[in-house]
């Protein structure tokens, strides 16, 4: 896997520091052309892996890369699912079951499950989870997706509930059907990695905030360091700049000194910032 992965928060107005800045970014990237310009710049700077959500607009981006494969021969998508806000809003207006119905293909599986006419609760859940994954993956047909991520809001919900089997169901389906590695995004890395281990998911990718400030690193910096040193997983650091609260040089220098980190995911809106981050990683990453 590449050391530097390009994230997509900036394209969708997600900014953990300022709603005003988020709105400016939404305006700037409301046309998909603007997104493609930045992705092309990243590609030219050698940042060729795009870790993205399954936002409706990513379907347009994916379509572009499918149609212009010769232009970006080694461009890779690492999709993260689900895009949670569309589900959350649907739950508010239509309830849990109503929302599921909206997003599942019409196979009658859910109705059968709720009526209790299908055989086992366990089978229903596996069926529902795999159908949801397939629905989200449809936009990436024909593209390289070597890792499929579970978004943190779902990972952490399942982790809190103790619904540990779901991680294995996800991992099995991703490996079996997509020949991809399962990845788990989390805000609770020290709690998650032992659970994945108990589920027998070998060397999963785990992406979490890892930054010098300890911002959104639940359990604290020390617990993260212990987990990184003692568990079998492949760590990807996100929010290394803590939403801009840490100067770039200091942030990258620090994260490159942490043990067993395989990659860094970062967002940027300009070629200049992409190049700058890439140069810092070249300078400080010694393994």
């Amino acid at each position: 896997m590449d050391r530097l992965l390009f994230g997509d928060n900036q394209f969708f107005g997600i900014n953990h520091m300022s709603e005003e800045k988020a709105r400016q970014q939404q305006m700037r990237f409301q046309r998909t052309d603007a997104v493609l310009d930045v992705l092309t710049a990243a590609y030219e700077e050698g940042v060729r892996t795009f870790m993205c959500t399954t936002h409706d607009r990513i379907a347009e981006v994916a379509g572009h890369f499918r149609d212009h494969r010769e232009q970006y021969p080694d461009f890779t998508f690492l999709p993260g699912m689900p895009y949670a806000h569309k589900y959350a809003n649907a739950v508010t207006t239509d309830g849990m079951i109503g929302a599921l119905k909206q997003f599942l293909p019409d196979t009658g599986l859910l109705d059968a499950a709720i009526r209790g006419t299908s055989s086992l609760v366990g089978k229903d859940i596996e069926g529902i989870v795999t159908l949801l994954i397939d629905a989200e993956m449809a936009m990436f047909t024909g593209l390289s997706t070597p890792v499929i991520w579970l978004q943190n809001v779902v990972t952490d919900l399942l982790l809190g509930l103790g619904f540990d089997d779901a991680f294995r169901i996800f991992a099995d389906h991703v490996r079996g059907t997509y020949n991809a590695e399962p990845g788990f995004i989390t805000m609770n890395l020290p709690l998650l990695v032992p659970v994945l281990e108990r589920q027998g998911i070998g060397s999963p990718l785990v992406c979490a905030n890892i930054n010098k400030l300890g911002f959104r690193m639940s359990g604290g910096l020390e617990a993260y360091r212990r987990a990184l040193e003692s568990h079998d997983f492949r760590a990807v650091a996100m929010s290394v700049y803590a939403s801009g609260a840490i100067p770039a040089d200091e942030a990258i220098h620090w994260v490159c000194e942490q043990p067993n980190i395989e990659a860094i995911v970062f967002g940027a809106s300009s070629r200049r910032n992409i190049r700058h981050t890439a140069q810092l990683v070249d300078t400080y990453w010694r393994h």
């Binding site: 953990h16 690193m217 939403s243």
Partner: peptide, 17 residues
């Protein structure tokens, strides 16, 4: 001042501290 500076860490994070 930003949330990064004003937010107290929590033991477990889901959707917001």
């Amino acid at each position: 001042r930003h949330t990064t500076d004003l937010t107290q860490p929590v033991d477990f994070y889901l959707r917001g501290e």
